[in-house]
Design a protein around this nucleic acid. Structure first.
Lengths: 106, 106
DNA sequence: TTCGGGTGTCAGAATATAGTTGCACCTGTC
DNA sequence: GACAGGTGCAACTATATTCTGACACCCGAA
């Protein structure tokens, strides 16, 4: 993981709002409108936060059809575990300096 | 640790510039002007980054007098280890303004 | 005295991020 | 048809963060 990716990943979780979202999702998957109600924010804003969380792999989403025929976009917590030490950071910095060629799995 | 503190701590390290500073400091302590030169930023900007890093305990600073009599502000890496899981986050959210949890050096 | 190299801080510009409002569209129910 | 409830997104404003440039001051050497 290079320094940009690591930074984006940490920034994604370094937000009280997004922590609240993650905590709420621990209870199980929820569709977007319901989640917006629970955490008390507009759907538009929630979409922005979800985009960041999903981009860094903290949540997954899937659009499904309810029995009533209405579309529901479900958001679920993805398993993750981050460990940050000086070595994590130095490695990321070194990778950025070297060459940002190939992908490492985050 | 509450959600505000955790967020601030993560935000402090979630910056390419500050990661670069930390990586540079792994080689040993450096005084501010020299560090500014090495990472290629103005002193004023570096002070801003250092304030955030120090506030979250990633670095320590000490003002010393060189043999030549000039003041030197040394910056040194502080030992730290962060572990972020869904439980870390849920606990932080739960501890809205509550007590201090155990174990990981910020 | 002037120069170079330090420390410390401030006001303001530039930029990124967060948040709001409004619209278009879909589906099943009253 | 008129709702109620869902998805998706663009335009806009507000706020926070990042960054620059300039200032004041201190010390030793030329």
């Amino acid at each position: 993981m290079n320094v940009e990716q690591l930074s984006a990943t940490l920034a994604a979780v370094a937000s009280p709002q997004r922590m609240l979202i993650l905590a709420e999702l621990q209870g199980g998957r929820v569709h977007v409108s319901e989640l917006a109600r629970r955490v008390g924010m507009s759907r538009a804003l929630l979409y922005m936060h979800l985009a960041k969380l999903e981009a860094s792999g903290f949540v997954t989403t899937s659009l499904e059809l309810s029995p009533e025929g209405t579309a529901l976009k479900y958001v679920a917590l993805a398993p993750f575990s981050l460990r940050i030490t000086i070595d994590t950071i130095t490695d990321a910095v070194a990778h950025a300096a070297a060459s940002n060629q190939q992908g490492e799995t985050p």
